[in-house]
Amino acid sequence: MSPDLLRLDLLVPLLVYCALLWWVGRGLSWTAWLATAVVTIVLIVGVLLVERGWR
């Protein structure tokens, strides 16, 4: 396994995001929960693309 996959600066925010999404999504329907997850992932990817210079 590549050492890049085990970097804590990527793993910890992902785990926190999953926990927060679970906590916020407890009262949401499945479609609202899925839409929230998709929008958040798109925002994360957008930030990463801008941060890394569109590579």
Rank of each mutant, 00 (worst) to 15 (best):
M1A: 13
S2I: 00
S2F: 05
P3Q: 05
D4G: 00
L5A: 13
L5S: 13
L6K: 07
R7P: 03
L8P: 04
L8M: 10
D9H: 08
D9Y: 07
L10T: 03
L11G: 04
L11A: 07
L11D: 01
V12L: 14
V12N: 00
V12Y: 07
V12C: 01
P13G: 03
L14A: 14
L14R: 05
L15V: 02
L15W: 05
V16R: 11
V16W: 03
V16K: 11
C18E: 12
C18N: 06
A19F: 12
L20I: 12
L21R: 09
W22R: 15
W23T: 11
W23M: 15
W23L: 12
W23H: 11
W23P: 00
V24P: 02
V24C: 14
R26M: 10
R26F: 01
R26Y: 03
G27H: 07
G27E: 11
W30N: 09
W30M: 08
T31C: 11
T31K: 10
T31P: 07
A32D: 15
W33F: 15
W33T: 01
L34G: 03
L34Q: 08
A35F: 08
T36M: 13
T36A: 14
A37V: 09
A37F: 08
V38G: 05
V38L: 14
V38S: 06
V39P: 04
V39H: 06
T40P: 01
T40I: 03
V42I: 08
L43N: 07
I44W: 11
I44H: 14
I44L: 15
I44S: 13
V45T: 12
V45Q: 09
V45C: 08
G46C: 01
G46P: 00
G46R: 02
V47F: 04
L48P: 02
L49P: 01
V50F: 10
R52I: 01
G53S: 06
G53D: 01
G53T: 03
W54F: 13
W54A: 10
R55W: 02
